[in-house]
């Protein structure tokens, strides 16, 4: 198709007197991964729910796969799959039963549906757990199954709403791998996340959402350049801190630390500080994200830097 696979113009939504979306413009090209980055309450989930026909916008237009979400929701539903923040699988069924049920409900031919389910179990490393009840799955396994269910119909557009929120680092990395596989198939993806590193790892382009407005968009690199570089932060014994710019590569950090050692600075502790979503917000809006997200981002960044 020509033109964007997902497009919104002036999308507005309010719940009662609370404005959640105040005119959101987005465009995602076919095969592209757009990361929609923002703190809790920025309007990420609302955007995804409107695009996946679960919610009606108050104003503006939205098309997915060339179909208007309001006028032809059924056509949109045929093209999309949604993996939300809450895993949408039946806890009391096994992994395999979940895939078979959803294949039936998606009206896939029986044999093709089953074969596709088996392929996805293998792809997502769930074959061994296929006959276990989902209630016994780990958080990472649930998300993988959830994603597998969403891919049964080979959707052209995939919505991933905070796919790794609440996962441990290992499961998070596994899920990223799976998403990369899907993206390799040419699926268009709209990914929402609170994590800058996640957007960086998966997205071709990033749009930053704040209080219902898109306040910036570009490649993850563009954004980081606008925010500023990473720093080696050295806390000195007896107070005082030195911040030295770095590209966060091993040779550069080694060079900086060697330099610190040569100058015989009284080092209490040191760390590499990478720009976080909080920094992005501080730079772009002058206000920070809600407290709570920053701690997570800190750990994520530290891991990335180590």
């Amino acid at each position: 198709m020509d033109g964007p696979m997902i497009e919104t113009r002036g999308l507005r939504k309010a719940f009662g007197t609370t404005t959640v979306l105040a005119g959101v413009d987005l465009a995602v090209a076919p095969g592209e991964v757009l990361g929609l980055l923002g703190p809790n309450g920025a309007g990420k989930t609302t955007t995804v729910e409107i695009l996946s026909t679960l919610l009606r916008a108050d104003g503006g237009t939205a098309t997915v796969g060339g179909h208007d979400v309001r006028r032809s929701p059924a056509r949109v539903r045929e093209a999309i799959s949604l993996t939300g923040q809450y895993t949408a699988v039946d806890e009391l069924l096994t992994g395999r039963e979940n895939l078979r049920l959803m294949a039936r409900l998606a009206h896939l031919p029986r044999d093709a549906g089953r074969a596709r389910g088996e392929d996805l179990l293998a792809l997502f490393d769930l074959t061994g757990a296929a006959d276990r009840v989902v209630r016994t799955y780990s958080g990472g396994m649930r998300r993988r199954l959830d994603l597998a269910v969403g891919l049964l119909t080979r959707p052209r557009v995939l919505f991933l709403d905070e796919p790794t929120t609440g996962l441990d680092p290992r499961s998070r990395a596994d899920l990223w791998d799976v998403v990369r596989t899907v993206v390799g198939d040419g699926t268009t993806v709209l990914l929402t996340t609170q994590y800058l590193d996640e957007a960086e790892a998966l997205a071709d382009r990033v749009a930053v959402l704040d209080r219902g407005h898109v306040i910036a968009h570009g490649t993850p690199d563009d954004l980081k350049h606008r925010v500023g570089a990473a720093h080696v932060v050295v806390d000195l014994v007896g107070g005082g801190t030195e911040r030295i710019r770095t590209d966060a590569s091993v040779p550069d950090v080694r060079r900086i630390l060697a330099d610190v050692e040569r100058r015989a600075l009284p080092v209490e502790r040191w760390r590499v500080a990478v720009p976080t979503l909080d920094d992005v917000f501080l730079t772009l809006t002058g206000h920070s994200t809600a407290a709570g997200t920053t701690a997570d981002l800190g750990t994520a960044s530290a891991r990335e830097a180590s």
Binding site: P30, G31, E78, H107, T153, R154, R156, T188
Partner: peptide
């Protein structure tokens, strides 16, 4: 809708299935 994009070929959607006797509601 045509699928003639150079960026990425959209994955082939599953062949449409004819509804069973009695329609999808029963199924």
């Amino acid at each position: 809708m045509t699928t003639t994009t150079a960026t990425a070929p959209a994955p082939a959607a599953a062949a449409p299935v004819r509804p069973p006797r009695g329609g999808w509601a029963l199924h």
